[in-house]
């Protein structure tokens, strides 16, 4: 029997596989394909204080080994989540983590305060790295001051595990990671999408309504692995790795680079049951290599 249990500080996960925000809906979209209880946890889509319609269509462009998106945090708002989604998922055995986004510091704080009474939500992931919104989002995540400010404010408003999701669109991601650690983040997750752009040369128009968007998928994985490796060496808090994970092998790359847990994102669009396959592949790998505990592999590089 291989031990796949991992701990992000005091946050316990039955295995290291989480789903990335914005790629897994509210979980129920995937209930026909997998048993949600088998996941380490799932991170529901970016939730804001008020409902948001997101950006105009077209919002997606397929690119080599990946895709660009410019959804722009479309969601029905935190009140909708609390009234309609939370009652459905509060019985789930795996961790349910809410990704929190906002345009202003006060909005992040207000969402945290509304979520705080929900006992099942043991952790939130604060999104300071969305490249597809004009205000807030990545604006906070690209400077150490901005990242520290959001972290400090949400830390005061959120009583349990606080994950801060980092942007790769920065000069030094380790500086940002250290800044959020300094303000009390319990862990960091990285990377959010990389800012990118694609052009339809026949129509001589950008592929996205917003011109630029966020690149995800295996195309970004080597960058993500490198950043996880750097950040894991720079901070003492746990690191959650994500970026183009399609298989157990890919997840293990992040774990060996120093990640305690991983998030699976874009792969869910191609294979809705991929998360459970990844868990099984990690277990198979450990058995094949006589690894009794997944934690033995963390940060070995």
């Amino acid at each position: 029997m291989v031990n796949l249990n991992v701990n992000l500080g005091r946050l316990h996960l039955a295995n290291p596989v989480l789903t990335a925000s914005g790629t897994f809906g509210y979980g129920r979209e995937f209930a026909d394909f997998i048993d949600l209880n088998e996941l380490g946890g799932f991170i529901v889509k970016g939730t804001t204080l008020e409902p948001r319609e997101g950006n105009p269509y077209p919002r997606m462009a397929e690119t080599p080994s990946g895709m660009l998106n410019a959804v722009g945090l479309q969601n029905k708002g935190v009140d909708y989540f609390i009234e309609n989604i939370y009652p459905q998922i509060s019985g789930c055995k795996s961790q349910v983590i809410v990704n929190v986004s906002g345009a202003k510091i006060e909005d992040y704080v207000a969402v945290c305060e509304k979520l705080a009474p929900l006992d099942k939500i043991e952790a939130i992931e604060v999104n300071i790295s969305c490249p597809n919104v004009k205000q807030g989002g990545m604006a906070y995540g690209t400077t150490t001051d901005g990242a520290a400010e959001v972290t400090a404010a949400t830390r005061k408003a959120w009583p349990r595990h606080l994950i801060v999701k980092l942007s790769p669109n920065v000069t030094s991601i380790t500086d940002i990671a250290k800044a959020v650690e300094g303000e009390g983040a319990d862990s960091v997750s990285l990377i959010n999408t990389m800012l990118g752009m694609a052009i339809d040369v026949e129509r001589r128009k950008p592929m996205l309504s917003t011109i630029t968007g966020g690149l995800s998928g295996p195309a970004v994985r080597p960058v993500a692995v490198r950043m996880v490796w750097q950040v894991a060496k720079a901070v003492a808090i746990p690191v959650i790795g994500l970026g183009g994970i399609m298989s157990g092998r890919d997840a293990l790359e992040f774990i060996m680079a120093g990640a305690t847990a991983v998030e699976v994102g874009t792969a869910n669009f191609i294979d809705p049951s991929v998360t459970v396959k990844i868990i099984n592949e990690i277990r198979d790998y450990c058995e094949r290599h006589n690894i009794a505990d997944i934690n033995e592999l963390r940060g070995i590089i």
């Binding site: 790629t23 995937f30 319609e53 997101g54 077209p58 997606m60 998106n69 669009f269």
Partner: peptide
Amino acid sequence: NMMACGLGACLCCVEQDNKG
């Protein structure tokens, strides 16, 4: 409309309804 997931998770293939 251009889709990624086909399951209502990625929110890429949207069309505006009569309520905006």
